[in-house]
Design a binder for these strands. Structure first.
Lengths: 106, 106
DNA sequence: TTGACACGTCGGATTCCTCCGACGCATCGT
DNA sequence: ACGATGCGTCGGAGGAATCCGACGTGTCAA
């Protein structure tokens, strides 16, 4: 592993986003997951490693298989970051309304 | 420009995220923005190009300067994607509660 | 008009990401 | 015990992202 991924870069890759969506339906083993993509199993395994380091998935070994579970909690960091922009946007709209009211008074 | 960035990859870069945060305080010209980073002006210009293509910023030429404005609306796509995981997570908690209630009955 | 300034983009270097085949380890079924 | 299966990781290749200096264009101030 060459890089230490944060949540933002973990979900910047469409394959990894698809993996997370698949895991919403329930835990899946690696080979099982890999069949949904036109990628080799090592590639999926490496994507899972990135998701693991971002703490978006947890692994549960079952015999020689390894089931991956979704843990969406780290997404809250992204959500919070975006939320601060929503507040900004509402403020902008609010300012605009006040401006229009001022215009009406004239 | 070699790639056509979506919103997810636009915000995957910390410099671009910082630019968006700076723009919350109001529109800024490029040189002005670049001073906040230890990067050359061309580098910032290229990050702005990515943000522009993701429609997260709008440009307003003022004479020889170019002011960049924030437009957080495309972030809604990311927010919606994350929201679907929040619903998943609430469902999981709900299921868990029911399971515990069943256990209590025994 | 002329020099200074603000900016975008190009060419090329460097670093990072993504992918695969190969290998090794643990586990399963027989 | 042994071959098959599931998986992680390594080495290296290919491509993409990031960065900078250099250059061109348009604008300003004098």
């Amino acid at each position: 592993m060459v890089f230490e991924p944060d949540v933002f870069s973990a979900i910047s890759n469409p394959v990894r986003r698809d993996i997370l969506v698949l895991l919403k339906k329930g835990p899946r083993a690696v080979n099982d997951l890999a069949q949904g993509f036109e990628l080799s199993r090592p590639a999926i395994s490496e994507h899972l490693q990135v998701l693991r380091k971002a703490r978006l998935v947890k692994e549960e070994p079952r015999g020689r298989e390894r089931y991956y579970h979704l843990d969406p909690r780290p997404l809250a960091e992204v959500e919070a970051w975006i939320e601060s922009f929503n507040r900004y946007w509402k403020q902008r709209l609010h300012d605009l309304e006040e401006l229009l009211e001022e215009e009406d008074k004239k």
